[in-house]
Amino acid sequence: MKLKSITRVLFSIMLIFSISFAVAQETTENLTEKLYKEYKQNGIDKTLKVYEKSPVKGNQYTFLSEPLNVLGYRLMSEGDLKAAEKVFLAQIDEYPNEANPYDSYADLLMEKGDEEKAKKHYKKAIDLSATMEDLEQKARMLEASKTKLAKLEGAGAELQFLKGNWTTENFGFQDGEKVLRNEGNVEFTTDKENTLLTGTVHNKSGQYIGTRLITYDAVDEEYDMIWIGNSLTGVEPSTIKIEKSTPNEIVMIEKYEEDGEKRKAKHVLKKKSGEIAWDIHDLSNSDAKNPVAHMSFKKKD
């Protein structure tokens, strides 16, 4: 009898919680639309006063579905940046220890063209994201803010000089002597956002050899690279970390897996007008000081 009573109580509590959550969701959605209608009829200042008196005011932050966050982006999409700014600032004032309000305001600042101020708010969002308990939201927040900040600061642009058409010569080493293995050409292109570098490789006869995809990972501050060959060997992924970058030289560490074993290689690129000398060192080799491969790139006119 006692067990049945406890079960009924627990069921009642769960039912009340479910109803309360549904009502809260409905209240949030209704409030979002109510705020927008108020804005259209009476302007943003009166809209914010309506929000101040709403039951949602002061509740736990609901991340991307937060009423002020939704309203701010809606106004920004309609071109009312002045009103959107007031909304985002009100969100920061209400939730000063949450990461997303700063990221949202930084997006607004980018629309206004204030890149320096936007950088500061993206950095604030990144710092606060470290305190987020929800791991999925934390990952999304870090990726969004770090990616936008990296683009502003020019991170991930070190390899953009590869864009264009190049003739290539690939060499190996045998008994300390450099031996030509093959010749061909590669064309590097970028997507519209300059976030993906694609290298399409052909041999000297024009036969397709494979494609190399390189994109910058702002969260880990390194490049993700994939080689897709024309054989049945599948996709070969790796990561690249820039150790040194100057106008004349780039040093990178590549990490990859081969036959179930984790390996590392050092790439040294020496640049001069229209030419690249590219040495590859196997860091798993005791003689890592000497390159195991060399590539010569010459820019086509």
Rank of each mutant, 00 (worst) to 15 (best):
Y105V: 11
K124G: 05
I228C: 11
G113S: 12
K86T: 05
V23R: 11
N194H: 04
K123H: 03
I226A: 14
N285G: 10
S238G: 15
T167R: 09
S5K: 12
M14C: 15
H267N: 12
K270D: 15
I209V: 13
S18V: 12
K86M: 08
F88L: 13
P237R: 12
L142T: 02
L152C: 07
E249R: 15
G199I: 10
K298N: 10
L232I: 01
K192M: 11
L64W: 11
V9F: 08
E111F: 09
K151T: 06
L149Y: 12
L75T: 05
T233H: 00
S145C: 04
K123M: 14
I209T: 03
T195Y: 02
D282G: 00
N290E: 15
T168C: 01
A99M: 06
Y102H: 12
E115Y: 14
Y256K: 04
L213N: 15
K298E: 14
D114V: 07
D259R: 11
V9T: 13
L109N: 14
T32V: 13
N165L: 03
L48I: 04
S273H: 12
N170A: 01
D282N: 15
T195V: 07
F17H: 11
R181D: 01
V179C: 01
G184N: 00
S296R: 13
K49N: 09
L35K: 02
M1Y: 09
E29C: 06
I250D: 06
Y256L: 14
W278A: 10
G234D: 04
L196M: 11
Y223A: 08
S20Q: 05
L64I: 12
A293S: 15
Y216Q: 06
G43L: 05
M141E: 14
D224S: 09
T233K: 05
L283M: 13
Y223G: 08
N59Y: 03
S5W: 12
D259F: 13
A24Q: 10
G154I: 01
K49Y: 02
E111D: 10
W166E: 03
D301L: 06
P237F: 10
F173V: 05
K192I: 09
E221Y: 06
K112I: 14
L31A: 06
V186S: 01
A144V: 04
W278K: 08
D175C: 01
E66M: 02
E143I: 13
E78F: 01
I126C: 11
E29D: 12
L109V: 15
L15Q: 06
Y51N: 03
A265C: 04
K272L: 06
K178N: 05
K262L: 13
T47V: 04
R212Y: 05
K255L: 10
S65W: 02
K117F: 03
N30Y: 09
K271H: 02
D224T: 00
T200P: 01
W227N: 09
L232T: 00
G172K: 05
K255I: 06
M132V: 11
E33T: 10
S18H: 01
V292R: 13
V268A: 07
N59F: 07
K57A: 08
P247W: 09
Y51S: 05
